[in-house]
Amino acid sequence: MKLKIYRYNPDTDKKPYMEDFEIDPGLDSGSGMLLDVLIALKAQDDSLSFRRSCGEGVCGSDAMNINGRNGLACTTPIIGLPEPVVLRPLPGRPVIRDLIVDLTQFYNQYRAVKPWLINHDPVPEIERLQSPEEREELDGLYECILCACCSTACPSFWWHPDRFMGPAALLQAYRFLADSRDQASGKRLDALEDPYRLFRCHTIMNCTDVCPKSLNPARAIARIKHRMIKRAG
């Protein structure tokens, strides 16, 4: 198997370069994932740097750009990947080293949408009731793993990472707008009513296209816009 991997170590390299690798992915390559290959490569060259943890697509650590498309290495089967497999860090974010990018801005935007339940009623001694239908509204929203595949595939986020919230944060904003237990809808909408924060989304749909959890941030954004219009009367 042939790969071309983006390398950059600010300690030793003046500028980034692409390095060629070749490896025999082994007998069970039929079910092997790209992360298995990266780990095998790291066993040969321990300087190759990437984040990883759960290896099963729930922690969101190993997002990267794989043959031009953002995805998780641990859930990308190697079978059928066109070679050489070109691996780059997530686009548009400062590179710390090799495939590791600085996600500070991404996390800042997440925090900025106040991603927690706001309810002003006295705290009941039992759970706040919610019908199965109301709960179903959260499906496709709460499952986000904050891997950043969507936001770093979004041209609007590339241009305005400081002012446009990006699809991941907006998906979270909608997760709370859609929650029957949350009482801050008005304030949440107010906070997004701005030419950049929400409305820099131009429905390019890269977010939905790349989401490794098959979520649909574009639809969530459309629903926020819809609520805003409805509110304006």
């Binding site: 927690w116 339940l117 309810n119 705290v123 001694e125 039992i126 759970e127 706040r128 009731l129 919610q130 019908s131 199965p132 109301e134 709960r135 959260l138 709460y142 709370f176 929650d179 237990r181 949350d182």
Partner: peptide, 20 residues
């Protein structure tokens, strides 16, 4: 503790009567 988590926003699956 479960009820406190629910108040924190954990999206527990629900029964027909709205309970966890």
């Amino acid at each position: 503790q479960v009820i406190e988590l629910e108040h924190y926003g954990v999206p527990f699956t629900r029964l027909e009567d709205g309970h966890i």
